[in-house]
Design a protein around this nucleic acid. Structure first.
Lengths: 225, 225
DNA sequence: CAAAATTTTTTATTCAATAAAAACTTTTTC
DNA sequence: GAAAAAGTTTTTATTGAATAAAAAATTTTG
């Protein structure tokens, strides 16, 4: 690594470290690029050259801190759990991570930045992290359930957005709501009335039903014992 | 309505109309509040007084134009369709609406504004519209499937976000992806291996399976004929 | 009609963002 | 190793969003 590359890396790191400290201490709106530049001992133009916008600085911070989240999830997530338990555990982790790390006010700015600067390098990096998170989830679902991982992640993400948008919601509330959503989704049925079963089939069905103690259709996803 | 109220309403409407025209013609970034103010014959401070921020102006425009979308969906959506068809039709409608109306670039700013200004009056108004849309969906699902409406709407919304974030994605692609997601979700199964069935039950199961022509578990949601 | 209340405009300031030129540092080349 | 070249940061300047406070204008009320 040449001295030039090293300097560049140093500056980059200084900017991110100082910005993170300032954002955490004074909030996003109240810290200025100038203050970040001053703390990092560069000019404000350099901050812009490195990260484009103030939101870009924040996205870069998230990209760093969230490599950790991926690692954490790898270990913290239950291994053989049913999908519902897995998904709610996953959701809880990322929400607690949001509160413990940047906090919701900053996360609102992150989500805004991702939406506003779709296509930018910073947004692309965030997207990769999101994909990595979805991969972790996919890895924990069995091969049979893996195809559902993207949709499950979308549901988690929707709840995460709501969680971040509010200041009062708790991670537990959000997880419970997610569980309800998912249960309702899995209970979906075609509204057209089933064609009346033929006689032989009806007999077999009746017998089976009896053996099942009247339980018609066991939920594909049961809440954990 | 007093003259004062009427004037206020007039000004408000002028600002929104002129802003919409400017945004459409020159894009969000290239139109300034000053230009909007000039066209609406008010000062830039008045624009701020009415709508807070530039994103606030845009959100107000969306709130107006999207009352129409709700009405349109009420008529355009199939009535007795199965959930999967309904959901994809719904998704297609809102994406086409986005393209036909503001366009994706502006929608990116809308989504960013909602995230950044969570809690503001403008964001709350947007949220109500979102809720109204979800209500339309709920109305079309039978009473049996209605509890799944929020989750289905979340899935649609996630796809809408992706759609808006990209400039190349088509509404059809997005709808197809949504259909796949949903199908995968509904095929979810508990990963724990089923306890070996008792003998009597096994016999009944075998017979039933035979009568079903080897189809184990019919999809609760079938694609439309 | 005059006083009071409300609203808009004027004026001024801070900060994000960007551009262009100048200054500085490292690397390359001879 | 010195001079030229390349790359990077800083200085300087400008535009535009956002906000605050005072001044001006308009409407309502007594």
């Amino acid at each position: 690594m040449t001295p030039r590359e090293r300097q560049k890396e140093d500056r980059r790191q200084r900017i991110l470290t100082e910005a993170a400290a300032l954002f955490a201490r004074k909030g996003y709106g109240a810290t200025t690029i100038e203050q970040i530049a001053l703390a990092a001992q560069v000019s404000h133009v350099t901050v812009h050259n490195y990260h484009g916008t103030k939101a870009g600085v924040l996205l870069a911070i998230v990209a760093q801190s969230d490599a950790q989240l991926v690692a954490r999830l790898e270990t913290a997530l239950p291994q053989g759990a049913d999908p519902l338990t897995l998904v709610t555990a996953f959701a809880r982790e990322i929400m607690q991570h949001a509160d413990a790390g940047l906090g919701r006010a900053l996360w609102r700015q992150v989500l805004a930045g991702v939406a506003a600067e779709a296509g930018s390098a910073a947004a692309a990096a965030y997207q990769r992290l999101d994909d990595a998170l979805a991969q972790v989830l996919a890895g924990r679902l069995g091969p049979r359930n893996r195809p559902a991982a993207p949709a499950l992640f979308d549901l988690i993400n929707a709840r995460f957005h709501r969680f971040v948008a509010s200041d009062s919601a708790t991670a537990d509330d959000a997880a419970a709501a997610l569980r309800r959503d998912l249960a309702a989704l899995l209970a979906l049925r075609d509204p057209s009335p089933p064609s009346p079963p033929r006689l032989a089939r009806r007999r077999a069905l009746r017998r089976l039903r009896h053996l099942r103690h009247r339980r018609r259709q066991p939920d594909p996803l049961r809440p954990p014992r």
